[in-house]
């Protein structure tokens, strides 16, 4: 059992009168892949947005334990400081810089480091600083991730012109170029075909092997069960299970959350209705999170 990389304590997020996440506590361990699952509307994306600094939680603490550094309380940081603290993310509906090349996308991810080497812009304009060397290093890092995601031959193509699967991989490569301690992925397998899903699973295992911890939201249970070390299950904004994939699969509450809705269908919210069939059938993604 390793140390935690991310510790969430009593996290609550309210939007007006609606409580999307209520008193959730869990820990993601360093060097592991932690999956966050749950039916639609369970509060996964909200929780995710709190961790990555897009929402400020109403209550609770999110602590990042980077090896060799004192813990950081993420909920106190401004949005753009989260990435500097060591958390990178991808988006459910891909957010690349479509008019810029794949390589440029990866260089922007290294903005803060490069910026420092230019003497905050001024030195570089005058040609004084050590910028060329820093840029060469940045390009090397970018090439490494382009190779890792099998995009090397697309380096000079605009990101917006890449096919869907490649865009997903490029977004992961871009997140990795920030050299994060924790990589947060929002439904990385959404819209991928089975072969692409397999490649993705392999990529994530490689990333884990290099020492980056992963937190991911995923509907594709095949991917989740295969690669996760730990699974956290949310339902109606509350944590209902937390354990190994095998444990979670046997958990009665989890089965009820996914499958038990048939009995209370009358009471179930409309948007959740599609879920039972999909997950019962196995491994499909259903719908998108609000």
């Amino acid at each position: 059992m390793s140390r935690p990389i991310l510790e969430v304590q009593g996290l609550t997020m309210r939007f007006g009168g609606l409580t999307a996440v209520s008193g959730v506590s869990f820990a993601a361990r360093s060097g592991e892949i932690t999956a966050l699952i749950g039916p639609n509307g369970a509060g996964k994306t909200t929780l995710f947005n709190c961790v990555t600094g897009f929402y400020r939680p109403s209550e609770g603490i999110i602590r990042l334990h980077k090896p060799g550094e004192p813990p950081t309380e993420l909920q106190r940081l401004a949005g753009h400081r989260i990435a500097r603290a060591g958390v990178a993310r991808t988006f459910q509906n891909i957010r690349l810089f479509p008019g810029m090349t794949a390589l440029e996308n990866l260089l922007i991810a290294q903005h803060n480091r490069l910026m420092a080497s230019t003497g905050w812009g001024i030195g570089a304009v005058l040609g004084l600083s050590g910028y060329p060397r820093a840029e060469r290093q940045a390009v090397e890092l970018a090439k490494r991730w382009l190779t890792a995601t099998d995009l090397m031959d697309r380096a000079d193509d605009p990101a917006g012109a890449l096919p869907y699967g490649q865009q997903r991989r490029l977004e992961i490569a871009r997140a990795m170029c920030t050299e994060p301690a924790l990589l947060c992925l929002d439904e990385p397998a959404a819209g991928l075909n089975p072969r692409e899903s397999d490649e993705l699973a392999r990529l994530l295992l490689d990333i884990r092997a290099e020492g980056t911890s992963i937190l991911l939201i995923e509907h594709d249970m095949g991917v989740v069960m295969r690669i996760s070390d730990r699974v956290v299950v949310l339902d109606h904004g509350v944590l209902i299970a937390d354990g190994t994939p095998a444990e979670v699969r046997r958990n009665a509450k989890v089965i009820a959350a996914y499958l038990g809705e048939d009995e209370e269908e009358v009471a179930a919210a409309d948007d959740r209705r599609a879920m039972p069939q999909a997950s019962a059938a196995g491994l499909n993604r259903s719908g998108s999170n609000p």
């Binding site: 990555t52 600094g53 897009f54 949005g79 753009h80 400081r81 989260i82 990435a83 500097r84 990178a88 993310r89 988006f91 957010r95 690349l96 810089f97 479509p98 008019g99 810029m100 440029e104 260089l107 922007i108 991810a109 290294q110 903005h111 803060n112 490069l114 910026m115 230019t118 812009g121 570089a124 304009v125 910028y131 871009r174 997140a175 920030t178």
Partner: peptide, 23 residues
């Protein structure tokens, strides 16, 4: 250079910029 690329990135997608740690 980084500053100019960050400007263009901002034009493309502000939210993604924030997620990458750009102020």
């Amino acid at each position: 250079q980084p500053l100019g690329r960050a400007w263009e990135a901002l034009r493309e997608d502000e939210i993604a910029c924030r997620a990458l740690g750009i102020n």
